[in-house]
Simulated scan of single mutants.
Amino acid sequence: MSVAPPPQGLGSNFNYFLADGGNAITGLNVEITFAEPLISASNGFGFQLNGYAQELAGAPSTTPNWQQYVVFSQPGDRTLYGIIDNWSGTVPANTYQQVINSESTITTLPKANQIPAGAVINIIPTFSSTNVITGITYVYTPPGGQAVSTSVTLTSLPVYGTNRRITSAYESPISALTLNIVGDYNAADGHFTSGSGTIVYTANQPLTVLTTEPSYTAFQDGTGETANTVYGKLPTSNSKTITQTWGIDSSGSPRLGPATHGIPLPIPPSAWKAKQEKRRNAAGVENRSIEEVE
């Protein structure tokens, strides 16, 4: 028997949540496989692992209630990036604020706007002895090739908008998670012309499939990015490994709206650099044209 889909359906920025009754999830490994190539026609692509924490009594106000670990690529760019985007506070109380926004490079893809069939992406949080997430490892394995990985420790990063380093006061466990395959960032609406595969969720403890974000997690919102992706139904489960299919709606829908506000993934540094480079190139062309006229 399948678990009821979210009211908005199974697709885009709405997928099932997985949880363990409010207990901290540990040993998590989310693996995305590609039976067909994922081809983006617009706004790149992003694989967003969204982790949700309880607002624990006595925890510092800086403790993140929403942790995003994202693998993405921008339109026309062969670089595969990883982003950490963590938030404290809650959306219903309008107290949410960004804690971490950090970008790293994972690898260079064979073609821009495409993940080839047979590739595998893994998003693997690092957990401390007290079950808080202290870092992340992104792994990309090309078809028949050698895996490449990038690992980031949270304490190596600055607190967003400051020169201060992350400390344990900015770390937390997660009690629920969901995975979305969407556009790259900044509330982008990704449009894919091809793509299918599986999402394999593995944890140290059995996970239960839920229709919506559980009431005991604090953030109560989701990502603002969307796409024409669809996710397979899952049976009632209490397993350490859960496998879900994913694919593309060829009609270009559903493109579903945000859960509450829908928090966009901020524009990453690589995108700002690309814009600046385009401006410099455009200015150079204009200057050359003026010189030719003179």
Rank of each mutant, 00 (worst) to 15 (best):
L49Y: 08
L49C: 06
Y52K: 14
Q54V: 04
G58F: 05
A59R: 03
P60I: 13
P60K: 06
P60G: 08
T62K: 05
T62M: 09
T62H: 03
T63G: 04
T63F: 04
P64D: 08
P64C: 15
N65T: 15
Q68N: 13
V70Q: 04
V71T: 14
S73I: 01
P75F: 05
G76E: 06
D77W: 00
D77N: 10
D77E: 11
D77R: 00
R78D: 14
T79L: 02
L80T: 03
L80K: 01
I83E: 03
I84D: 01
I84C: 06
D85Q: 14
D85Y: 14
G89V: 12
G89E: 00
V91S: 00
V91I: 12
P92D: 02
A93W: 06
N94D: 05
N94C: 02
T95A: 06
T95K: 13
Y96K: 13
Q97P: 02
V99M: 03
V99A: 09
N101I: 06
E103G: 10
T105G: 04
T105Y: 03
I106K: 02
T107I: 04
T108H: 02
T108K: 00
A112S: 13
N113W: 03
Q114C: 03
I115A: 08
P116E: 12
P116N: 10
A117P: 00
A117I: 00
A119P: 05
I121L: 13
I121W: 11
I123N: 09
P125A: 05
P125S: 03
P125R: 12
S128M: 03
T130W: 11
T130N: 12
T130S: 09
N131I: 07
N131L: 07
N131M: 05
I133Q: 11
G135Q: 04
T137G: 10
Y138N: 07
Y140R: 02
Y140L: 07
P142Y: 10
Q146V: 14
A147Q: 08
V148F: 10
S151G: 14
S151I: 08
T153Q: 10
T155I: 13
T155A: 10
S156V: 03
L157C: 06
P158Q: 10
G161Q: 09
N163M: 04
N163I: 07
R164S: 13
R164Q: 14
I166V: 15
I166F: 07
T167N: 11
T167K: 10
T167A: 09
S168W: 01
S168E: 15
S168R: 01
Y170V: 01
E171C: 06
S172Y: 09
S172T: 08
I174H: 15
S175L: 01
A176T: 09
L177C: 10
I181K: 15
